[in-house]
């Protein structure tokens, strides 16, 4: 009934799901129905038809990302409050921060660009870390209230717009360009900006949204519906 490739046949979908005690899932990439095997630690399952990652099983999906989120939040604050780099030429000096850069763009007549930089470099990563902090703290004692699901969804929407790694490379290119014209010095913020992409990537790897959803109370306290063919 359940092929080695994980595909399900029409009349066996429900039986397969209940026999393995694992819910059936449809691949988000190609809609193929399949039953996920029980995953060992650090395992990853891909869809046999389209190759999309269907499930991951990080070793410790709550405490580890929580610790990383706290660390990343501290680093983000340092990156935003200390100068990223300084410049000295002919006896004059200048320095800048992330939001200082966005504000300069704004005041130079590029309000939209300034806003975009502020969102991608500070607001989106900040809100993402804040929501993750709330979600991960709340699910430590299941069942978690439904607002955890709402925050998790918002964090998912914010994730593509948090670009600390792109900002870091942008900073380095700007440093090299300006170094042609003046003496540039790296500030504390630059080191914090260097650590941030590493921490955010570590959160993404150690985190499993599925593990959170399993601990969230269903809207209206329904029991899981039977997923059966008509």
């Amino acid at each position: 009934m359940l092929g080695t490739d994980g595909k399900i046949r029409l009349d066996d979908a429900d039986r397969a799901a209940s026999a393995s005690r694992q819910p059936a899932v449809a691949c988000p990439g190609c809609d193929l129905l399949q039953c996920l095997p029980r995953l060992g630690p650090s395992a990853r399952v891909r869809c046999p038809r389209c190759g999309e990652v269907l499930a991951t099983a990080p070793v410790d999906p709550i405490e580890r990302p929580l610790a990383l989120t706290v660390a990343a939040a501290i680093v983000l604050i340092v990156a935003n409050t200390t100068p990223l780099m300084g410049l000295a030429v002919a006896g004059r000096a200048a320095q800048t921060t992330i939001l200082g850069g966005a504000l300069t763009m704004w005041s130079q007549g590029q309000a939209l660009t300034g806003a975009l930089v502020a969102i991608c470099a500070a607001i989106a990563p900040g809100a993402y870390l804040l929501f993750m902090l709330a979600v991960l703290t709340a699910v430590r004692r299941p069942p978690a209230p439904p607002w955890v699901g709402t925050l998790l969804r918002l964090a998912g929407h914010l994730q593509p717009w948090a670009m600390p790694e792109v900002m870091l490379l942008g900073l380095l290119v700007a440093l090299v360009k300006i170094a042609e014209l003046a003496t540039v010095t790296a500030g504390v913020g630059l080191y914090a900006a260097g650590a941030l992409p590493v921490l955010l990537a570590a959160i993404a790897v150690s985190f499993d949204p599925g593990a959170i959803w399993e601990r969230v109370t269903w809207v209206g306290n329904e029991t899981p519906p039977r997923i059966a063919p008509r």
Partner: peptide
């Protein structure tokens, strides 16, 4: 987004 960041930090610093 790279070029946006390069431009922003260049503009912010070189004033």
């Amino acid at each position: 987004m790279l070029d946006i960041f390069v431009d922003t930090f260049t503009v912010a610093l070189v004033q």
